[in-house]
Nucleic acid binder design. Structure first.
Length: 598
RNA sequence: GCGCCCGUAGCUCAGCUGGAUAGAGCAACGGAUUUCUAAUCCGUAGGUCAGGAGUUCGAAUCUCUUCGGGCGCGCCA
């Protein structure tokens, strides 16, 4: 089902072109900011009139005479300097609502040109626990993936895990030095790797990591040993590699449950980390050299894309091989993007990482274009986001200044939600309260992130995100629970909603609150399109909030079960479509559960 | 020094290729409950959209500039 906005845009644009003879003059139809101006307004008359040096109101009249929207809108009104105000016909609104009611996909239109879209997100570091810094990439990327998929694109998720850096040299060297070697010395002949691997947990790893880093920084001998281990790992030394594999597996055991808690769709199948590209790096550099793009500079191999300057105003290098011969993240990113373009045949590649890496990606994309790996039609995008801040406006840290572990953050959110559920709904069984707390707590954290414009930094506050008022997960969940409650009550009273609505072919929307709710409901498809186009989940949360508000207003003035006949049928349809829309938006697109009761 | 992002109500934030009198929530004040979950709804008050200049029928939005905050800029990722 085509969004109304799109139909209006097309038809009015056509009339505008016919009237003016201009090849390009969009109607620019937008929802009105103010209800007094109707449901939609046409903004495109004035720019067109400007171009033709004619009076906008007169042009508007001609366009109105030319356009054919009488099946959708009431007689239009020309207002202000040259706006055309559009009001949907009640019959049209009712029919559109009915159509959505009958559509399993709630009127969401499948895209006509489906693309293969690679979305690179989350990318946790192996051997470290996930912390709050990983939250935004993980959930924003997940929402973007879900939205694009929902619109009919072929989404390939890529979890570019950090599993190949120098940190493994340190980690394994440290481990050998302090654990393995003493163990061998004390008990020769045992399978020490197996014993140690079994006892190695992520929390240990992290501790080792910190200590190893310290040692690495102050002990040149240990640093040298670490580098030797990295070389061994990279040359596929079996013992070292099995150790590495264990660390990777152990880390996965840590972050997969977090994905599950967060209701993030990433699975181990989506993992395609640094190590996967390790063997391709020499060829990447060679290819760039062969194309005369990569050249030596101060001992390193660099590409100099146009338009990038260093502090000194000189051309800024994109270093693909260090002077010691080692490859670095730029090389890996090149190998990865080449794979995505040439082997995965991506039409669009989206990187969801924080804004600090903007320059890196600009240069990366520039090099890709120089190398000719992507044709003009391919879109390479860096979807950036700001930092999570604490109440003091500084980067979010624990009281002692450490990084906040994601698992602990989620624990606290659930704990706080549980306290509220216990207070508000003590009669529900403990197990159910626990489940609700889970949905509310985790949902609140995710929703708070989604509802902010991703460009800006935002202040993390449990109190704000768990509030029942305002643009929060609990508000949305509450609206949903109320609808389900109506349906439960109906069933208790022996009313079979399914039966009541079977074969319904006409809806009567008489109350303004009903109409307002219906108007909101038929715009769902458009809201997803807008959010997906710019990779901005906050457009979607904004829509869902307006929807829930429209529902709450309706709920307050339009009793459902006390009403009768056609009115009750219409209200039941409104409830049904609202519930399904909220559930779809929250569950399918944002990955936030909506409890049946709360 | 150069580049990117940000600056909107007391606080936290929206504002969709430029559109009409800039919107929410919190906090403050006043109302609504014999009714399907009041975790709700309605109303009042609150603004030099950081400052200035420009583009134009029209600017929070585009351009330039100043100020303030954050981040980045050759072998880390």
């Amino acid at each position: 089902m085509k969004p109304v906005l799109e139909i209006l845009e097309q038809r009015i644009s056509k009339a505008l072109r016919q009237t003016t003879g201009l090849a390009v003059c969009p109607a620019i139809v937008r929802p009105t900011a103010d209800g007094r101006f109707g449901d939609y307004q046409v903004n495109g008359i004035m720019p067109a009139a400007k171009q033709l040096k004619t009076n906008p109101r007169q042009l508007a009249e001609k366009v109105v005479a030319q356009m054919n929207i009488s099946d959708i809108c009431q007689p239009v009104e020309i207002a202000g300097p040259g706006f055309i105000n559009l009001r949907l016909k009640p019959e049209f609104l009712a029919n559109a609502l009915l159509e959505i009611y009958k559509d399993k996909k709630l009127g969401i239109e499948q895209t006509a040109n489906s693309q293969t879209v690679v979305v690179d997100y989350s990318g946790p570091n192996i051997a470290k626990q996930m912390h709050v810094g990983h939250l935004r990439s993980t959930i924003i990327g997940d929402c973007v993936s879900r939205m694009l998929e929902c619109l009919g694109h072929n989404v390939i998720r890529q979890n570019h895990i950090g599993d190949w850096g120098t940190q493994f040299g340190m980690l394994i060297a440290y481990f050998n030095h302090f654990y393995l070697n003493p163990s061998i010395a004390a008990h020769p002949g045992q399978d020490h790797y197996a014993v140690l691997n079994d006892s190695l947990r992520i929390s240990d790893l992290e501790d080792f990591y910190r200590k190893a880093k310290e040692l690495y920084d102050k002990d040149p001998e240990f640093a040298e040993e670490s580098r030797r281990v990295v070389v061994k790992l990279h040359s596929h030394d079996l013992a070292i590699q099995s150790h590495w594999q264990h660390i990777v597996d152990e880390s996965r055991e840590h972050y997969q449950p977090i994905y599950k808690r967060l209701n993030v769709t990433l699975t181990s199948k989506d993992e395609c980390g640094e190590s996967v590209y390790a063997d391709k790096l020499p060829d990447v550099v060679k290819t760039l050299k062969d194309k005369k793009l990569a050249v030596e500079s101060v001992g390193a191999i660099c590409v100099f894309p146009e338009g990038f300057k260093s502090k000194e105003g000189e051309p800024l290098p994109f270093i693909v091989q260090k002077s010691d011969g080692a490859f670095l993240y730029a090389t890996t990113d090149l190998a990865a993007i080449r794979f995505r373009l040439q082997d995965l045949h991506a039409n669009r590649v989206i990187y969801v990482t924080d804004a600090r890496q903007a320059l890196h990606f600009k240069m990366l994309f520039a090099v890709v274009k120089m190398a000719g790996w992507a044709d003009e039609s391919v879109k390479l995008e860096h979807v950036t986001f700001g930092t999570m801040l604490g109440a003091d406006g500084k980067p979010f840290k624990t009281r002692t200044g450490g990084t906040v572990k994601l698992a602990e953050l989620l624990d606290e959110a659930v704990e706080r939600a549980k306290a509220v559920v216990d207070e508000k709904n003590p009669d529900l069984p403990e197990q159910q309260r626990q489940k609700i707390a889970q949905a509310v707590g985790i949902g609140a954290v995710k929703y708070a992130d989604y509802s902010n414009n991703r460009d800006s930094d935002y202040i993390f506050s449990f109190d704000k995100m768990l509030a029942m008022d305002g643009n929060t997960a609990p508000y949305m969940q509450y609206a949903y629970a109320r609808i389900r409650s109506i349906e439960r009550k109906a069933e208790q009273e022996g009313l079979n909603i399914q039966k009541e609505l079977t074969g319904i072919c006409e809806i009567l929307l008489s109350d303004p609150a009903e109409q307002a709710l219906a108007r909101q409901l038929i715009q769902y498809s458009q809201a997803i399109l807008n959010a997906a186009a710019d990779c901005r989940p906050n457009y979607l949360t904004g829509y869902l909030y307006e929807l829930s508000q429209a529902f709450s207003r309706f709920y307050n003035v339009c009793p459902v079960l006390q009403s009768e006949g056609q009115i009750r049928a219409a209200r039941l349809v409104l409830c049904d479509v609202t519930a399904r829309t909220i559930r779809h938006g929250m569950t399918e697109l944002l990955g936030i559960e909506v409890p049946e009761q709360m």
